[in-house]
Design a protein around this nucleic acid. Structure first.
Lengths: 163, 163
DNA sequence: ATAATCTCTATTAACTTAGTAGGGAAATAG
DNA sequence: CTATTTCCCTACTAAGTTAATAGAGATTAT
C-alpha cells in the first residue's frame, strides 16, 4: 500500500510537471491545491530535492520546480524515495535486498520466487512510466509536454493505445 | 510490503501443500518448523480456515490440512485474506475499491491510472499462481503434486520454463 | 476422566506513519 | 540595510497498525 506521503509526493510532482520545467510554485500553493498539510509537504519536497528531483529557490519569489524534464522522472524512483523498495519482501528486492533471517535456502524459496516476479512486474510499470507519460492522457498542456519530449528524441513509453 | 502475518500464512500453507491434501499437521509442528510464534500462528490458521482454505480437526490427533487441492489455492487469495487488497491505492482496487476523499476527477486521475496497471500486473501473477505452482520447481513431492493435478485435468499455470 | 488440540476474545507491546512545532538561513523588495 | 518571505532543518508528538501474548472454552481420542 502506498503511504499518504508518497501520494502527496506524486501529486506535487505531477502538479509541477504540468506547470512546466522552469516555473516555480510555492509549497503553500501546492499544499492548498492538494489539500496536504503544509509543514508535512515541506518535508516531502525537501526529501525529493535531496534526491535530485526538485530544484528550489528560497526567499521572496521562491518556490519549487522540477530539476529535470517530466519525461525523465520515473514513478519507480519516487516511490522508492518515499516508501522504500518495490518488492513485497526484502529478499526479492534489487534495490533494497536483505536476507530473510529465517530462510533456510533462499535459492529455492518458493515465496521469494513468486515475489520476485511480482517485483519485476511492478518495476516493469513503475520504472518505465514517467510523470509526462502519466499526464499524456488528458489536457493540451500534457500532450504538448510529451510532444516536445519526443522532439528532443526521447522515447515515450506506455503511450495510451488510442493517443 | 507483505506483512509478517502473510508470510507465516504462506509458509504454513506451502508446508501443508507439500504434506499432501489428506495429512494433518499440528500448529505446534508448523510453528516450530517455520519459527513462528505458536499462538500467533493459531490466529492465522484460524482465519485461513474461516475463509475456506483449511480444514481442521480438534482433539488429540487433531491438526490442520488443506481444504482443497494445492493447485486450487491462489497466492492472490491468501494475500488478500491477510493483508487486504493488492492495489497500491484503494481507488485502484477491484476487490476493495474505495474512493479517494480528495480526488477531484477519478476518471482522469493519473496516479490512479498508473496504480491500476500495477494492480493488474500483480493480479496477473498472484491470481494465477497456486501453491502447487510455487512448489513445482523443486523436490519430487512437489512435482508429483503438479503431475497429479494435471491428471485431474487442471491447467498448470506459470510452469517454469525449463521444467 | 484426562490430556491434547483447536477455538475464541481480549489485551498489550512494538513499530510505523502522519503530522506539529519552532526556529534558522537565504533571497528579494523596498 | 532592514524587513519580509520563503525554503531548510531538527526534534517531538499523536495516531494508527502490526505483532504478539494471555487465558479460558470446546472438542476429540484414548
Amino acid at each position: 500500500m502506498l503511504s499518504r506521503k508518497t501520494k502527496y509526493a506524486l501529486r506535487a510532482l505531477l502538479m509541477l510537471a504540468e506547470q512546466g520545467e522552469g516555473r516555480m510554485i510555492q509549497v503553500s500553493d501546492i499544499a492548498e491545491k492538494q489539500k496536504a498539510p503544509k509543514k508535512f509537504l515541506e518535508l516531502i519536497l525537501l526529501e525529493l530535492k535531496k534526491h535530485g528531483l526538485l530544484h528550489s529557490q528560497r526567499g521572496k519569489r521562491g518556490g519549487y520546480t522540477l530539476a529535470k524534464p517530466a519525461d525523465e522522472i520515473y514513478f519507480g524512483q519516487i516511490v522508492r524515495i518515499m516508501d522504500g523498495p518495490l518488492a513485497p519482501i526484502p529478499c526479492a528486492s534489487l534495490t533494497g535486498y536483505r536476507k530473510c533471517a529465517d530462510c533456510a535456502d533462499e535459492a529455492t524459496c518458493p515465496i521469494r520466487r513468486v515475489m520476485r516476479r511480482v517485483r519485476d512486474a511492478m518495476s516493469e510499470i513503475l520504472d518505465k512510466t514517467t510523470l509526462a507519460d502519466a499526464l499524456a492522457h488528458h489536457g493540451r498542456k500534457a500532450r504538448r509536454l510529451v510532444r516536445s519530449a519526443a522532439k528532443r528524441g526521447r522515447k515515450i513509453r506506455n503511450a495510451p493505445a488510442g493517443a
